[in-house]
Design a protein around this nucleic acid. Sequence first.
DNA 1: ATGCGCTATGCAACCGATTGCAAAACTTGA
DNA 2: TCAAGTTTTGCAATCGGTTGCATAGCGCAT
Lengths: 343, 343
Amino acid sequence: MIPEKEITIYDIAKSLNISAATVSRGLKDHPGISKLTKKRIFDAAKDMGYRFNSLASNLRRQRTNTIGVIVPRLNSSFMSDAIAGMEQVANQAGYNLIISQSLETVKKEVENSLTMFNNRVDGLLVSLAYNTQDISHFEAFIKKGIPVIFFDRIFEHIKCPNIIIDNYQAGYEITKHLIAEGGRRIMHVSGNQSRNVYSERFRGYRDALEEFNLPFSDELLIVNNLTALEGIETAVQILSMEKKPEAVFVSNDTCAVACMLELKKQGIKIPEDISFAGFNNDPIAKVVEPNLTTINYHGEEMGELAANILIRHLTNNLEIGPAHTTVLGHELIVRQSSTKKII
Amino acid sequence: MIPEKEITIYDIAKSLNISAATVSRGLKDHPGISKLTKKRIFDAAKDMGYRFNSLASNLRRQRTNTIGVIVPRLNSSFMSDAIAGMEQVANQAGYNLIISQSLETVKKEVENSLTMFNNRVDGLLVSLAYNTQDISHFEAFIKKGIPVIFFDRIFEHIKCPNIIIDNYQAGYEITKHLIAEGGRRIMHVSGNQSRNVYSERFRGYRDALEEFNLPFSDELLIVNNLTALEGIETAVQILSMEKKPEAVFVSNDTCAVACMLELKKQGIKIPEDISFAGFNNDPIAKVVEPNLTTINYHGEEMGELAANILIRHLTNNLEIGPAHTTVLGHELIVRQSSTKKII
DNA sequence: ATGCGCTATGCAACCGATTGCAAAACTTGA
DNA sequence: TCAAGTTTTGCAATCGGTTGCATAGCGCAT
């Protein structure tokens, strides 16, 4: 089965006795081409089994209609929501998504950004790896005027718009809630403090404690990678504490749930002995018993918004002016894990 | 800030007084180019800030090093795992992933496949939408010799390799387990029967019933879209049944969990009154109380395998011979939702 | 007739890497 | 010194759509 030759606009041109330029314009619905000619072109294209060659078009136009996406992991509830949102918007606008994951390592993030650069994506949507400290690997894009937009795990840069939620405020609210429910000794389990999301939530937590004159000590803060495994370790650590906390605010749901379950297994009553709060509103938060108090966070919306902002830049060919931060709303969702009284 | 001119191999050639052909070969580490020349080329490329232009390369070579992925949804636990697996393998092998979702509609699936076709992906990895009945939209690929590989939700086609688990066997095992635990009247909640995964699981369920001489009646089968919402509806339906089932096998975990929770809310005891089993081993299965018996299903591995098979085809330029079905293993994971005795 | 203004189409030069074939440069042996 | 062999490099066509500019064709008014 020899794959038959590809039909080009030249073939169509020849068969209609017109020029390739006219065919090109006709297919693009250029106003300068007469109705009749257009119809003949479209008919011939269909007849002959023409397929548009975006490779050639890309080369000539120096654009790819492709958006690069770099995220820490694809398979987290939040990220897959965000990507689903991006895909919808991008698809609608005629863009493709090239997706890669850094697996939380700077090395892969750098490699991926280089691939994206060589593949000449028109723009980039990025959520940073756990310990990316500088973003020099994105400078090449910035220098060329290729928009780089950060979402969720961001880096402040004058040329990079970013989209976040108010992590400080969310951390503050949830801590305040735990205090209102009677917590005095409130622990916080957080991630790498060089990442905005975690340091901001921590800051909110600290400020809430301070506002209510509650003391903070290093013993109350655990920093890890917020995996389920580390949730269990955290539980062990809590069990070994002389003075146990009355409440725990964990910076993501996965870790919070694992920790809760382990504590339950060891006979701790939640929320009676220790109340819990997480972050993200993953599906498991609604399922664990008691249901987990958490911050709801619109992944899909964030993805859509990021894609929209990028595409707006691309279609209007905007200079990336002094960068713009978009703050999306979030909601404290109070569930049984943090309410001492039965609802 | 005027973006400075792109450096091409011609610029490098000029600066070194050699030909562009030599530069091209040098950069590709072609054996015919001397060590010294190569070094000079690489140095000059670095100095001048050259970046490889894959657009030009793609056009000339008629390849894109890009793999298209079409899935029903990006944000399901299984799919995001599968995609994560694909990304790793593809990335490793120097391929990019273009990802799109059909949102379970044939219309979008067709559109997306057309986009992929025009964008000249080198191959396609597909998991079909809920009610895709024919795959004529993939014929164009097949005719051109572009490999199309189905995974999980497949379609039998002589030219398309596919990767699945043994859904029949899994459905059979899980039903048999429910029977062994004392179930006689066992319901099954399934999805669209024209999709292999659901019809096969149903078939396994039927055969298990038959083997143990348990009667099947239409009342025992509910077909819906397996969403959480429909899980709740299913619970309502079960509550209204005169003769309630002793066990329920639901074809995914999301729906199973929603149904369980609703029944619990209405005072049904699980597994004492009704035992439950799901499918997929989503994170929620391990968290819901009682923990949900389910089939574990290696999404990431399936993604990796699909990508590997595709890439092997691409690098060896294999004819897609009589299609090859790869069956991945699965495991029945027994948890408390189906075990009458306390563990 | 002549000229003006429009519309519709064509010319030809891109975009930049790749590659078959030819040829130059260099080695080696007689 | 010359021929044959090997290594290294260059020529030029190619991939196929796009687009600035030129021009042909036509209607209409003077």
